[in-house]
């Protein structure tokens, strides 16, 4: 009787250990390996100073001399095979000071995060400075928004639309004009084409 009881208890304990290993242990092991590989992939992007790091040439946007449009400028940006990481690298380059060029995005603005959905919608999460330090003009607001939208959609074909978030939240507008409730697609209306520019 005692033996059967001990045997049964043993079976139960073994089953419990096996179940833990199957449902918790293995996934944990697997996921930690995966995280390690992701971290390895992200490292080159995070270390722009490295000489061996691959770079891409990205088009960034700045306020034109006449203040009415966006002027494209080429900059080298660290390469990343991951779309979100590449988007982040491009945006950080866009947000970095670039004197004498003037950015439509207030200088104090920090990039909090970038997400990219499978549908190609990028969510760019910015610090509240983009609102509080903004001039408040509708023209500047358009230029701020399309600086960010175009920086991603022009350089990354995988990103079709961009939605701007402030401090992790969806917002109506930055300064009361441009509708930010939906992701916005690329707009070349604010980037003068050379031939039409001459006609103006």
């Amino acid at each position: 009787m005692n033996r059967t009881l001990a045997l049964r208890a043993g079976v139960v304990v073994f089953a419990a250990i096996a179940a833990w290993a199957l449902f918790f242990g293995l996934p944990r092991l697997y996921s930690s390996r995966k995280e390690a590989s992701v971290a390895a992939a992200a490292t080159p992007a995070a270390a722009p100073a490295g000489a061996a790091v691959r770079k891409i040439t990205a088009t960034l946007f700045y306020v034109s001399e006449d203040g009415l449009t966006l002027t494209p400028a080429q900059r080298e940006v660290a390469f990343s095979p991951n779309v979100a990481a590449q988007a982040r690298a491009i945006l950080e380059a866009q947000l970095a000071p670039a004197a004498p060029l003037v950015s439509a995005v207030p200088a104090e603005t920090k990039l909090r995060d970038v997400f990219v959905t499978e549908r190609g919608d990028a969510f760019v999460d910015l610090s509240g400075d983009v609102v509080t330090k903004h001039s408040g003009g509708s023209l500047d607001e358009i230029l701020t928004v399309y600086t960010l939208v175009n920086a991603l959609t022009v350089n990354l074909p995988a990103i079709g639309r961009v939605q701007i978030l402030i401090d992790g939240k969806e917002v109506d507008t930055l300064a009361g004009h441009v509708d930010l409730r939906h992701p916005l697609a690329k707009s070349v209306e604010w980037i003068p084409r050379p031939e039409t520019d001459q006609q103006r």
Binding site: V63, D66, S135, G137, S138, H177
Partner: peptide
């Protein structure tokens, strides 16, 4: 009705959107 602002103080003039 709005009044505009620009990072470049030289920008001026009325606009209709």
């Amino acid at each position: 009705l709005h009044a505009n602002a620009s990072v470049r103080p030289s920008v001026g003039g009325a606009e209709v959107f």
